[in-house]
Design a binder for these strands. Structure first.
Lengths: 230, 230
DNA sequence: AGACAAAAGTGAATCAACGTCAACTTTGAG
DNA sequence: CTCAAAGTTGACGTTGATTCACTTTTGTCT
């Protein structure tokens, strides 16, 4: 809520003359997200209340609703944020990878590295007093997964990947990576490289033997995102 | 709430003289679970309230709390129920499977078959007006996963599986199966055999190449990946 | 600088759902 | 038939969600 030095710096750096109003808006939003991260981690998604979150920010309860409509929406924003950080990395790996194998290897490395570096954020999803693991399928997430599937489709077209069921393959890799990621994060010493090696070996060892799909669901309008009115 | 004919039948068959009291207790519990299944499917986990559930049963609100302490606990019971149905099948497959490969193949088949048959229950976990997917890590679930890991450990001991990181391997298979299962269920025509083939090929193709525990490929520079030219 | 309108923040008030409990009903044992 | 125990009921006090009239802050125009 206080204009920070960084704001001024950032502002200058970006050449954007942000007004104070916009700056506090950004700051408040960030403060809420940050607080939410902490509360979710402490109490678990189910147990946290909107008030727990705003209490940590020092803002008034009403202010919360200027930024988010519910705790669900905050959570969604957190997930989106994570996905938005990962996607460009995956895209970069995609670009520098010439074959499907390269891509899988590089992408898995990137994913586990990222996870290890942003541990805090992702612990949100599992942590707690007790047991409810929550995953949110945000637009950003769906798009991210879909992008991966697209890459696979491309590789099928250009021949580095046999014509397998790309939805299943994407789901396999994603499911495997996420579940392994959870375990990795829970370990005492997190070793993303080892996790990546493991996952890579499993996926790459097997993909040649996959049943070839005459059956692949033909991604009707693959890319068109449904506008989720929200 | 009404003593059904089946009750009498079951009672006789089992030789258990259930009193009316016990019968209604069972019936009420079942009614609540059944109602919950429906409500969760209709509204999604997040949006449903305890009262939505009991309303469907015709019982009074207070009665709910004689059976469960919260909606979380009902959900947990539903998950447990699913897991309790699957576990014996997996155990059976385990017994009749002589090698790791057999086990994986048979277990995956069993899992996808089951999922297809009990579609309704598992849609609970994903379904809704909107986007929050909830997974619950119940004791039963953890135990089920752990059991799978045990099997893998055994196979390592008896040599049909190299000494890989069994937690990661279990997590991989579980994550892959669950994520694929979600997709399978969402498809228009559910084909568990195809899904099982796919998953089996992927897992079995790759497990020989997995890094052996303790011997994890010594990523000299964990970060730099082999990137042949480019 | 001063005045004003728009934007954003505030917290008391309202509302919805939770979970409890005293009173009531049903069951089963004697 | 009687009675205590088990179980059900729904009204009630709580807690947290959400709204909104009011205040404060900011940016703009003179």
């Amino acid at each position: 809520m206080k204009d920070s030095v960084e704001d001024a710096v950032k502002e200058r750096a970006e050449g954007k003359p942000l007004g104070k109003r916009e700056r506090t808006k950004i700051n408040n939003r960030e403060a809420i997200l940050q607080a939410a991260r902490g509360v979710f981690a402490d109490l678990g998604y189910g147990a946290t209340t909107v008030r727990d979150i705003i209490r940590r920010t020092g803002l008034a309860s009403g202010t919360f609703y200027n930024y988010f409509r519910s705790k669900e929406e905050v959570f969604e924003a957190l997930m989106d944020e994570g996905m938005r950080r990962i996607r460009p990395r995956l895209r970069a790996e995609r670009i520098r990878s010439r074959t499907f194998e390269d891509f899988i290897r590089n992408a898995l490395h990137a994913y586990f590295e990222y996870l290890a570096s942003d541990r805090e954020t992702f612990e949100v999803m599992r942590r707690n007093p007790n047991t409810v693991r929550v995953r949110m399928e945000t637009a950003e997430m769906i798009a991210g997964f879909e992008e991966i599937r697209e890459y696979m489709e491309e590789d099928i077209r250009n021949g580095t990947l046999p014509p397998v069921d790309s939805e299943y393959l994407m789901a396999s890799v994603v499911g495997l990576a996420m579940e392994m990621g959870d375990r990795m994060i829970a370990r005492d010493n997190v070793d993303p490289a080892a996790a990546a090696e493991f996952a890579t070996a499993l996926v790459l060892g097997g993909f040649h033997n996959l049943p070839v799909a005459g059956t692949a669901p033909a991604a009707s309008g693959a890319n068109d995102r449904k506008d989720d009115g929200k």
